[in-house]
Simulated scan of single mutants.
Amino acid sequence: MTRFGFRYRARRRVLAAGVLAAAVLAAAGCGGASGSASSSDGTVVLRVPDPGNSGVLARGKKDGSLAKALSAVNTKVAWTGSTGPFAPAAQQINAGQLDFSQGSITSAIAALGQKPGFKLFAQIAPDKAGEGILVRKDSPISTVRDLIGRKVAVNKGGTAEYLLLKALEKEGVKPDQVKRVYLNPAETAPVFNSGQVDAWAVWAAYSVPEISKGKARFLVNGDQVGSQNYSIWAVRTRFAEEHPKVVQAFYEYLRERGLQQIKDPAAFINVFTEAGPQAFNGAARELTISNLRQGAAAAPIGAAQLADFDGVARFFADLKVTPAKVDVKPHVLSLAGSGA
């Protein structure tokens, strides 16, 4: 799930596919995978999940800077549903109902093994401070080896399962020595806090609230397990073919504003409201600011990233998370001047 598209946007962000599809179609007014949305005056419509209350796109939505940047390529934004896990977003892209979305390379690899209709065009370095394995603050678990025989909550085939398996590998623990409990991340906090699972592998959107409330601590974080879990941006293949200048303009906006976010993270938090479930206050705000300062901005996908992606794909295949090794390279879009 950190980085230029601000990964800590909402605490509960899962939307049923049917609801999202209806929202997309209502907002964009155009259909499937064979073409791109456009308004009656010929303006291109770029469909992307609503960013919520924090992050690069939230800031751009409020101050009009994103609309201004895209107007230069005769494009406007349609906000469709809410930002959430990449797997359902990938399904919407494949169905021609969404044009852009952000996710993790781990989730993207799983989706790329399913006849994808999208390309990856940007990456953000792994969030090694905000993701990891949580245990309750008073838990007796102090090492990864203490997880043997215990239950750990993960989302299947994504960031959480990857983090857990990486941590076990590093400590020489066999995967079947730990019970993986597959849960929707947005519904896991009550299960974790009630003790029904012993640990929770998760990213910053969920670790920040738990840690800032004093309920949990990291057993290990992404840096300690050697995570290569990049954040990625994906674009619908047909959209990229029809509107390469729009993809380039959108990327350049994400890159520029991402660099600004690193320098001044407070300006990208609580963009629309400082109250309510989407707002970060107190310890959560300070922890989020700290994480963002350690983050990265969008960048092209180059040879080094492709090698890391290949390593993640091989790791997933070796541990039977995916039925076979996914070749990511054919699904990467080279941006103008990127050298990728």
Rank of each mutant, 00 (worst) to 15 (best):
I211W: 00
W79S: 06
A122S: 13
R293A: 03
L70K: 10
A17G: 14
V235R: 00
S82P: 05
K263C: 04
A266K: 15
A111Y: 07
Q278K: 14
I289E: 12
K156I: 02
K62H: 08
D308P: 04
W79T: 05
I211T: 05
K156V: 05
Q228H: 11
S107Y: 06
W203E: 13
R217N: 01
S104I: 04
R236P: 05
A27S: 08
S39T: 13
D138M: 04
V225T: 08
K320H: 15
V208Y: 00
G84E: 06
T237M: 03
Q294K: 15
K329Y: 05
T143G: 11
F250Y: 15
Y230F: 15
K156H: 14
A95D: 14
P116C: 05
P244K: 13
K68C: 00
L20Q: 13
G31E: 13
A33G: 09
K137M: 06
V225Y: 00
L120I: 02
S231T: 07
A303Q: 10
K137T: 04
S71M: 03
T322H: 07
A129M: 05
T143V: 01
A340W: 10
A199T: 03
A22W: 11
A324E: 14
S39L: 12
S142R: 14
Q224L: 00
G222R: 04
I301S: 02
F268V: 08
E187G: 07
Y8V: 12
Q224W: 02
V48T: 12
F100M: 07
T83S: 12
D264S: 14
G222Y: 01
V225K: 00
D327A: 13
G103C: 02
G117D: 04
R257N: 14
V328N: 01
K263P: 07
Q92G: 04
Q278E: 15
A122W: 02
R47L: 03
K166P: 04
G195M: 13
G55P: 01
K115W: 08
Q248S: 06
S207W: 01
